[in-house]
Amino acid sequence: MESIVELKNVSKVMKGRTIIDDISFKVNKGEVFGFLGPNGAGKTTTIRMIVGLIGITSGDITIGGYSIKTDFEAAVGHVGAIVENPEMYKFLTGYQNLIHYARMSRGITKEKIAETVKLVGLEDRINDRVKTYSLGMRQRLGLAQCLLHDPEVLILDEPTNGLDPAGIREIRDYIRLLAREKNMAVIVSSHLLTEMEMMCDRIGIIQNGKLMDVQQVKEFINTAEVMFELEVTPSETALSIVKSTYPNVQAGLSRNGITVGLSKQEIPRLVKQLAKEEIQIYGIKETVKTLEDRFLEVTGEKGGTQRG
């Protein structure tokens, strides 16, 4: 795989505070790279550095081999981006907005504009003022704006923010399509894990300005162990029984009972044991850890050890 965006030891210090701390990663062509982290972790700052809106304190970012620092025009020419909300000139029509941006890149024809408008499905409303657009339509116009010059890298900051489920789905399908058909590298950021799970090939987790982990999405979820949730009363007694029988196994209290990290084969034995101790068992459920749990685990663990 060929990498197109490369961050090398990028740091950003603002007013004496280190906001981004020594981040390095690569994004390949044809892949959707997710940038995941809680609010204020530095996702948007990193994205703004990639597109040159914010200066880099140390390190470098290259896009298609050109440094955004020293070769801004060449580097950013490969990029189409929406940073946060797609803010357009509200007093202009959608079409005038596109003309405005088309004039700022080389060689965008009227046909290309029309084609892009069709692609995002705005033909009917393109000659209305942006003022009258819904958020979903603005998002689509924003997408049209970044696709005009056939970029090799698409950067979308919180692309599904404020969209309804249909809109979210639309954007998601779109992103996958662009990566697959046009071999674009897509970088998306979000704090919504389920979204990322469905959209991305790889996910980088960022917290407190540090890149905690970069993993394949499949790997990321599969490494999660299976847990069993037992609906029991009294749960405290049940938990102590589990802990004494299986001292090496992860176990804890849950809302309706306890959860244990046992393998399937061990469950009948545990049930027998619990029944013998006169614990009331109402149900047993297999639960797969969600990306969310994993995410909280990764950020929790590493954030915790860091602070401690």
Partner: peptide, 14 residues
């Protein structure tokens, strides 16, 4: 104030 500066400055124009 419109927020359009972000889209304006990510064009291949210094």
């Amino acid at each position: 104030s419109w927020g359009t500066i972000k889209l304006l400055l990510i064009r291949p124009i210094n």
